[in-house]
Amino acid sequence: MTDGPAVDSRPTKIMYVAEATAHGGREGYVTSQDGQLDLKVAMPPQLGGDGNGTNPEQLFAAGYSSCFHNALILVGNREGYDLTGSTVSAKVGIGPNQQRGYGLAVALSVSLPVLDPGLASKLVDAAHEVCPYSNATRGNIDVTILLG
């Protein structure tokens, strides 16, 4: 799947604002203003840390997979399909980029066991257009969607 031309996906109305604060960067902790999030953050061993905590890539994977799954359920319901039993998993990779910084890549794995592959692909494409994470990352990072 490839992304088409850039489309203005900015919200016309803000309906909710999440607020989180990092303390100590990748070797500290993160909290949300409402107290729902309070997590130790640690570098994974692959990046030189001890791995005794979550990391931004895991948090991004959790956010993207849950958001994309909700978009998938939304478009499925709009078309009259029950997507019970469906799942979305996200793998978020990090590595050096050509600008001497770091970049991300995402692989989403979508399981729609009750639908034929053609219909499943159509719903995944529609969810990719609806999902705020997909809209935010489009044209900025590589996102691969695998349907299985």
Rank of each mutant, 00 (worst) to 15 (best):
G139K: 15
P96M: 00
F60R: 09
F60W: 09
L104C: 04
Y81F: 11
S86T: 13
Y133E: 06
T2R: 15
S89N: 14
H128S: 15
Q33G: 05
V114T: 12
G35C: 02
N77I: 00
G63Q: 06
A6G: 07
V114G: 01
P11W: 03
R138T: 15
N140D: 05
L112W: 03
Y81A: 00
E57R: 10
Q33R: 14
R100D: 11
G51Q: 05
R100F: 05
S89W: 03
T21P: 01
T84L: 01
P11A: 00
N70E: 10
L112V: 09
V143Q: 04
A62P: 03
R78V: 01
I94L: 14
Q98D: 10
D3E: 12
Q33Y: 09
G148E: 13
S86D: 01
S65A: 15
A42M: 11
N97E: 00
R10N: 13
G76Q: 02
R78P: 01
Y16W: 07
M1I: 07
F60I: 02
L72K: 06
M1S: 13
L146R: 12
D8H: 12
V124I: 11
P96G: 01
V130W: 04
A126I: 04
L147P: 08
N52F: 13
F68P: 14
I14M: 04
Q33P: 00
K13T: 13
N135S: 11
L108R: 09
G139L: 10
A107N: 11
P117R: 06
K40Q: 15
G139F: 14
A61C: 10
I94Q: 04
S32T: 10
T54Q: 06
A120V: 08
E27W: 04
